[in-house]
Write a protein that binds this DNA or RNA. Structure first.
Lengths: 226, 226
DNA sequence: TTTCAACATATTGTCAACAATATGATTGAA
DNA sequence: TTCAATCATATTGTTGACAATATGTTGAAA
């Protein structure tokens, strides 16, 4: 059979375990499956209309992403992040996104920088017009970071940040329904980072990104004080 | 039944999937399961004397650790790292172990530093006496890094480095049967790092560690040239 | 009332069988 | 010979049933 042709009409094969994995992951990240809640296999397998076999495989993959914790003979629970764990994640982010900036500075061209500027002006509009639609602000913020990590060209770094840590951040934000957190200043810092990238100044870009995330971490910590 | 008492004689409960996961992981890291080789479920389930159910769960966890790659309807393969992937890992290591040093500098006490020195003098002995037993040198090197990451106090960082990236490094070393790589200079650099930690100089310790790993990366890259 | 044990129930762990897909060999035609 | 289609085999994907463990409840004794 013609492989090239058939791939255009047939849907790409994927296993039930893979589908349920994505579904569960978004459910967890969006908060539909509450932080700390137990994962009931019979219940979920009924919900998704599959047997427990593939479901259990999906849960194992979630365990690999650190989104659930499994206790033998007891079951899986959606993880729940406490303050110190959130700080740990921010420390790692600070380091890794600094790296992403340093790498990106050696690879970006003008088109990339324009894309970043476009993103930022979109954010500016949203901040002005919607005047506090938290969700989009936050997702927009992640978009910016997302793009820079992509530009770094380090695929493993991309996976680590965008496929693992960012999901945890979303989970944490949802879990604590965290506050808006200084949209104005962050916006400025983003522009400074793009400036550095445009000048191919990797060291500066790294430092600015690290400070940017360190600031976010401080905001986070001060929110704990209440 | 008396729980406290029985736990003393009965082995702690763990699932077959968990056991097989550890077994497979060490088999992969030690090279007993060759890089790039296919994972045959019926064959492995016979080898370990279990059914395919728990085996598949173990394989999913390995997928989460990025030690195998799964293609739907085709199966799992042990990953195989190429040059650029190895470089990507070293870039990430450089960043994260720098972080580990910075954090450690704010937390170490004299006892910790003594432990580090002890490790290093053990290494010195091994380098002198065995004069080229590569394996121990390399494992010893990892021991040093392992301990510093532990001292950082960031549990997630520890997991990321020691439970994920280091396994990949071992796999890569085994896959390429890599060369001795500058035992003398590395030894010096290790001591300089402990000096900085002893002085609670986090910035310096971070910079030294980053350079240390950057050097190792350069050695790695130059080995490709042959 | 409280505490402990035994029981009933629910959930997780494991297995073997079946279905769907891929892989490799064979056959037949150009 | 070479290519394609077809078939046989092996492997993966999925399921439902059973076993082992944990959880929650009831009831009896202190």
């Amino acid at each position: 059979m013609n492989k090239e042709f058939s791939s255009l009409i047939e849907t790409r094969p994927s296993t039930l375990a893979d589908d349920v994995f994505s579904n569960l992951r978004t459910a967890i990240v969006k908060g539909e499956l509450e932080s700390g809640s137990k994962i009931n296999e019979p219940q979920l397998s009924k919900l998704y209309g599959i047997s427990r076999g593939p479901l259990r495989e999906a849960i194992r993959r979630l365990e690999g992403c650190k989104l659930v914790e499994i206790t033998p003979n007891v079951g899986a629970k959606v993880i729940s992040l406490n303050k110190s764990q959130a700080i740990e994640i921010y420390e790692i982010r600070e380091s890794l996104e600094g790296l992403a900036c340093r790498l990106s500075a050696t690879r970006v061209d003008q088109k990339d920088c324009n894309k970043l500027r476009d993103l930022l002006s979109n954010h500016a509009q949203q901040i002005q017009s919607e005047n506090g639609r938290l969700y989009y602000q936050k997702e927009g913020d992640l978009d910016f970071h997302y793009l820079i990590v992509q530009l770094s060209g380090n695929a493993r770094l991309f996976h680590l940040l965008c496929e693992e840590l960012y999901h945890l951040l979303r989970l944490y934000r949802c879990q604590t329904s965290s506050k808006p957190s200084r949209p104005g200043q962050a916006f400025k810092e983003h522009h400074n980072i793009v400036d550095a990238l445009e000048n191919r100044d990797g060291e500066l870009a790294e430092m600015l990104m690290r400070r940017h995330i360190a600031n976010a971490k401080e905001t986070l910590i001060s929110q704990f004080e209440e």
